[in-house]
């Protein structure tokens, strides 16, 4: 199976401090991979650097067999590398509908956009009921659904999700995890899930990378990681 995303030796420095050091991550085509780690481990920085939001100091990124290290964010989005960021970053004073349409900013295929809109409504029926509501007035869970739906409107090949569980109730987190698997199953979209909530991460993904203070300390299938001593220590108190 070929990899849709390959991150090689990614290093990001903010001034003199190293945020992420020599990180290597592969996401297989059609797979769900998770990147876990505690606060400040460099998870979001890894994603942001991959998307070109944060400049990287060293490393290469290839997407879909193509070197995109120096491509702009908008080029990456056009190629199908899309991120639903931490904290959602919706457009709070715009309607749900306009938020969704903005997700398809770079697309010209009207029929495809319409189909994806239908897909989003099937996935999250609540969004269809709230089309005219301003995004900022919805509940946290609904906003997270909108953030994922907006990312799906770009017709991604790889959907990167940065902490979708942030600030949500356990039942809603469960629901989000189920929807992410459904996207992967029905659309074949590869998924890179960055999480602090290991239960969501392990329940959703099949392969797992673990970051600690900017470096990868463990990787393997979810089963392997679950029994890994380093991870156990970090997360489950030994």
């Amino acid at each position: 199976m070929s990899n849709i995303l390959e991150i090689r030796d990614l290093t990001v420095m903010f001034g003199k401090s190293i945020a992420v050091h020599d990180v290597n991550i592969n996401v297989p085509e059609g797979g769900i991979v998770t990147l876990i780690g505690s606060n400040g481990a460099g998870k979001s920085t890894t994603l942001n650097a991959t998307l070109g939001i944060v400049p990287m100091t060293r490393g290469t990124i290839s997407f879909n067999g193509e070197d995109v290290t120096h491509a702009s964010t908008s080029e990456k989005v056009r190629k199908g590398l899309v991120l639903a960021p931490e904290g959602r970053h919706l457009f709070p004073y715009l309607s749900v509908y306009k938020n969704l349409i903005l997700g398809a900013t770079q697309r010209k295929d009207k029929e495809g956009i319409q189909q994806d809109l239908e897909f989003c409504f099937e996935l999250f029926p609540i969004l269809k009921d709230r089309l005219k509501q301003k995004a900022g007035t919805m509940s946290g869970g609904q906003q997270q659904m909108l953030a994922i739906a907006r990312a799906m409107m770009a017709n991604p090949k790889l959907l990167c999700l940065d902490e979708p569980s942030l600030g949500l109730a356990p039942a809603v987190i469960e629901d989000i995890g189920e929807k992410v698997r459904e996207i992967n199953r029905t659309k074949g979209t590869s998924i890179l899930l960055v999480e602090q909530n290991v239960h969501l991460a392990f329940g959703t993904a099949s392969y797992c990378y673990t970051l600690q203070v900017g470096e990868l300390v463990a990787e393997g299938t979810v089963e392997e990681i679950r029994n890994n001593d380093v991870v156990k220590k970090a997360y489950f108190g030994g």
């Binding site: 998307l51 939001i53 702009s72 964010t73 991120l83 457009f91 709070p92 903005l102 770079q106």
Partner: peptide, 22 residues
Amino acid sequence: ALGRQMEAVAQDRLGAALQGIN
């Protein structure tokens, strides 16, 4: 479309960039 993008950038610059808006 330009108007929509203007509002998007005004309300959340990072969010707008992640939709591929230049």
